[in-house]
Each structure stands twice: as structure tokens, then as C-alpha cells.
């Protein structure tokens, strides 16, 4: 998989939120987006997912332009802010309804994904009664359960306890292979350094620094 971001600019209500971004992302890498609040990390992730369309430039995934050749990436798992699950359904039921769209995975796979993030698939509690941490874990489970080729996680460690952080870290490392692109954003530089082999720093909607991060195995 290859993502090419060419001259990407996005304006919202006359504010430039992404400013002439040029990036190439390749399979087999875990990319870390870093930067202060409002630097454009989430907006860039949205642009890659197709949730926002560029004012100028384009995002190509395997030479197909988002917003022109396709509306959304073909095989993506995404967590950006809190996902809109159905509040009167349990966690398992929510994941089941999502998985029923593409029918790639079984109930067992859903259960496995929930257990991996530290949720109980037999929990009958409705999503509206979930804590912030549980909501975050369910969002991660939804993003990873179908083994997507493009995995985008915006601040995945928010609201998670230490044990859950370890679990999510292991999931991210397990999901990484030579075909997949994983993009995460995080304010914890220690996590970014542990997980990502390429770190992209954004500021005021621009890419200001890209560096290789050699992770010790």
C-alpha cells in the first residue's frame, strides 16, 4: 500500500488547517504524527480517510484519488475522536452491526478483538453507560477487528490505564506488517518513540520535520 499526499491544502471558514502538505507513506511502516494541539494532525488523518476533501491538492491511495476515484480508502480501520456507536446497543452488538457491512469476520473474531483491548464481549451494558476508557477501547477494537491495511488511530491511548496502554501497544505492533500502513498520533513522545519508525511533526497545518526512528527490537 502507498499513500501519496500532494500539495494538500485545506481551508475551513477561511482558516488554513492544512498547508501545502506533501508526504509519501509506504506499507510496512508505523507513522507517528506529533505536534501541539491544533497543529493539523487530526485534520490530516481526516483527509487521508476521505472525511474531508482538499481545497487544493489530493490524497492518493495506490494511485486512486480520494474524493474522485473513491470516497473512502478501500480497507481502512479508523479511530478519530469518539466513534458514533449506537448508544442503546452493547459493545459486542455495535461491533457486530459494523462487521455485518463487509462480512469479513466472524463473531469469534469480534470477541477476540474485544478481549485483546480488555473488554468483556459478554457485557450486556449499553454503550451509553460505558466509561471513557471503555468507549476508547471499543473504538480501537472496531478499528482493528477486520485487520485493515490502513489503520489510523488518533490519540489511541487517551483515557486508558497502564494495562490497557500495554495491550493497545501490543495490538499496534502485531498489526504491523509489510503491507499495512499504521498512522497514530499521540502527545506521549515515549509511546511514539516506542512504536513508530517514522515520526512526522506538524505545526500550523504544515509538515515541519520528518525523521526516522530506529526502534530497538
Amino acid at each position: 500500500m502507498k499513500i501519496c499526499i500532494e500539495n494538500l491544502t485545506k481551508k475551513i471558514s477561511k482558516n488554513v488547517v492544512l498547508d501545502n502538505i506533501n508526504l509519501d507513506l509506504f506499507g510496512g511502516n508505523i507513522y507517528g504524527f506529533v505536534g501541539r494541539n491544533g497543529s493539523g494532525k487530526t485534520m490530516l488523518m481526516r483527509a487521508i480517510c476521505g472525511l474531508i476533501l482538499p481545497s487544493q491538492g489530493c490524497v492518493k491511495i495506490d494511485d486512486k484519488i480520494i474524493g474522485k476515484d473513491m470516497s473512502f480508502p478501500p480497507n481502512a480501520g479508523v479511530l478519530i475522536e469518539y466513534p458514533g456507536f449506537i448508544s442503546s446497543y452493547s459493545g459486542f452488538k455495535n461491533l457486530k452491526i459494523i462487521s455485518s457491512i463487509q462480512k469479513k469476520i466472524s463473531d469469534e473474531d469480534i470477541r477476540k478483538a474485544m478481549i485483546e483491548v480488555g473488554l468483556n464481549p459478554d457485557e450486556k451494558k449499553n454503550y451509553r453507560k460505558y466509561s471513557l476508557g471503555m468507549k476508547q477501547k471499543l473504538g480501537i477494537a472496531a478499528a482493528v477487528m477486520e485487520n485493515p491495511k490502513l489503520l489510523i488511530l488518533d490519540e489511541p491511548f487517551n483515557a486508558l490505564d497502564e494495562e490497557s496502554v500495554n495491550k493497545v501497544r501490543n495490538i499496534i505492533l502485531e498489526k504491523s506488517n509489510e503491507d499495512n500502513i499504521i498512522i497514530i498520533s499521540c502527545h506521549d513522545y515515549e509511546e511514539i518513540n516506542m512504536l513508530c519508525n517514522k515520526i512526522i511533526k506538524l505545526d500550523s497545518g504544515k509538515v515541519v520535520n520528518i525523521r526516522e526512528n530506529f526502534i530497538e527490537v
Binding site: C49, L51, M70, S71, P74, P83, G84, F85, I98
Partner: peptide, 16 residues
């Protein structure tokens, strides 16, 4: 629903 994170469904159905 768009403001409340329905993107998770949109990305799966792949069709606006």
C-alpha cells in the same frame, strides 16, 4: 450523526 462520529459506519460502507 455526522458530528457524533458516524464516520466509523461511513468508512465501512464507503459511500456518501
Amino acid at each position: 450523526d455526522l458530528k457524533n462520529g458516524s464516520y466509523i459506519f461511513l468508512i465501512k460502507i464507503k459511500s456518501k
